[in-house]
Design a protein around this nucleic acid. Structure first.
Length: 476
RNA sequence: GGCGCGUUCAUCUAGCGGCUAGGAUACCGCCCUCUCAAGGCGGGUACACGGGUUCGAUUCCCGUACGCGCUACCA
């Protein structure tokens, strides 16, 4: 039975890279009919952020990623929050000390800093100098009894090659002399990631550890821990990193990295999930739009790429617009309506629906429906300069002045009727219809692009449209 | 610096010894057209480099270069 876990630290927002890791775990579990587990790794009390867990939960729900076991729905392997089981980590650490696989270390952070400094100065790789590795039992006991602060470190064996097989990268090996005597239990009594992670993965019977590439270097430490405990390690799969445009690890400094940012900007969960799924993995040579079911069906660890993937926002935009086009107007209404209300526009659902139908093919995000197309909801306050220069000529103004009464007098305000008015006028005056269409678009929307003018006028309505035209003739 | 991982168009990728190296996004033309978008048609751009192995390497092996990750009592 496949059992995988997503194990984030509640330190704030959910990174899109974390979203992908969570997604791959989810897809893998579902593909194999296995169990997807959520575990909160909150062993660093200094980085804990209030509300982060709630935010995580709602983000996962938004993205459509579900968990079979976790803090919200505990299975029999709980607790699923690491800070709730510190006692066990301490017991386990003591067990390793008793087996001489780990040892107490009394070095102060000041001494550690000094050691590191001098190592770096002389060009030696900065590692713990194992100062406390061979303290006598008596001395250790004495100092502990005296209440001296200490940590527990892993006693890394000397002269061994530590190997593991990565499901996406193949065999990887490390010389144990390059592995630090890692701290397992901090002086505050909390475990480090390495200890807690190994204990929990074993306790929760995790079969596959699917996580980001940044963990490759610490995997030998984990392998050593499994050995020290006498446990069989799970399989490891390290995912390629998500990258900035400059190929560095995707970071906040260079753009949006929080899933919440994308949500707020009007991206659909389906689109973001689809997009992020394809960063590092591809089920097909031709298709690119996949439902969650498609993704589950096609997901294979073997097809995961090794190289990092640049998070290419333009492609996300394209994918998002694909989804917007695919959705029904009614479904979009549910998403657009809250935005309309937030802006304080008072319009009917039917009105919003009409706007959606005109904008659906043009919108890249849900926010476009109210931002980009704001002229459906309020009179434009500024007019696109370039377009104005080109189309708002004295001649155009004269012609608009001439046809305006016809618009005002029109008794069936439909796009057909509107088109007839404009085309007839154009024909009569031997000008192209565009000579009238462009200035009117500018007068009514302030913009140089958008849906067809007749449809647009029909939606905006006779009163509002004609009043905007009259207004423009005065101010422009 | 040390260790590890990686490298096909600008970007995401297909390719698992023999292909005119395919698709998508972006970009550029043309068509459609009231603008934009969509759609249709077309276009340019890639196997990091050097050695092997082989009848034949994008594909296998070894180097080099470059990039990235890790190098905390953070995860």
């Amino acid at each position: 039975m496949v059992r995988v876990r997503f194990a984030p630290s509640p330190t704030g927002f959910v990174h899109v890279g974390s979203l992908r890791t969570a997604l791959y775990n989810f897809l893998f579990a579902r593909h194999h009919g296995g169990v997807n587990i959520l575990r909160i790794e909150d062993t660093d009390r200094t980085r804990y952020v209030e509300g982060a867990v709630e935010n995580l939960l709602s983000t996962m729900k938004w993205a459509g990623i579900t968990f079979d076991e976790g803090p919200q729905n505990p299975g029999k392997f709980g607790p699923y929050v690491q800070s709730e089981k510190t006692e066990e980590y301490r017991t386990r650490a003591a067990e390793l000390v008793a087996k001489e696989k780990a040892y107490p270390c009394f070095c102060t952070s000041e001494r550690l800093a000094l050691v590191r400094e001098s190592q770096q100065a002389s060009g030696i790789p900065p590692m713990y100098d194992r100062h406390c590795r061979n303290l006598s039992k008596e001395e250790v006991e004495k100092r502990i009894n005296a209440g001296e602060a200490h940590v527990i470190r892993l006693r890394v064996p000397i002269g061994e090659i530590v190997r593991f097989t990565d499901e996406v990268r193949g065999d990887i090996e490390f010389d144990s002399r390059t592995i630090d005597d890692q701290v397992l239990l901090k002086s505050d009594g909390y475990p480090t990631y390495h200890l807690a992670n190994v204990i929990d993965d074993h306790a929760m019977e995790i079969t596959h550890v699917i996580r980001g590439e940044e963990w490759v270097s610490s995997t030998p430490k984990h392998v050593l821990l499994y050995q020290a405990f006498g446990w069989t390690p799970p399989k490891f799969a390290h995912l390629p990193l998500l990258l900035n445009a400059d190929k560095s690890k995707l970071s906040k400094r260079q753009g949006d990295v929080a899933v919440e940012d994308y949500k707020d900007k009007g991206y659909l969960p389906d689109a973001l999930v689809n997009f992020v799924a394809l960063l590092g993995w591809n089920p097909s040579a031709f298709e690119e739009i996949f439902t969650m079911e498609d993704l589950i069906k096609g997901f294979e660890l073997e097809r995961v790429n090794k190289g990092g993937a640049v998070f290419n926002k333009e492609k996300l935009d394209w994918m998002n617009s694909e989804y917007i086009r695919k959705y029904s107007p009614e479904k979009l209404l549910e998403l657009v309506k809250p935005l309309v209300e937030k802006k304080g526009y008072e319009v009917s659902d039917d009105y919003i629906l009409a706007v959606i139908k005109l904008m659906q093919e043009r919108a890249r995000t849900i926010n476009d429906f109210v931002d980009f197309a704001s002229y459906f909801f309020e009179r434009p306050t500024d007019y696109e300069e370039k377009y104005k220069l080109k189309h708002w000529t004295p001649e155009a103004k004269e012609r608009l002045k001439e046809v305006l009464p016809e618009f005002q007098a029109l008794d069936n305000w439909t796009h057909d009727a509107l088109e007839a008015v404009i085309r007839t006028y154009a024909e009569k005056n031997a000008i192209s219809a565009g000579k009238l269409i462009h200035p009117i678009r500018l007068a009514v929307t302030g913009r140089g692009m958008g849906p067809g003018l007749f449809e647009l006028l029909e939606v905006i309505g006779q009163n509002e449209s004609t009043s905007r035209m009259a207004h423009s003739l005065e101010v422009l």
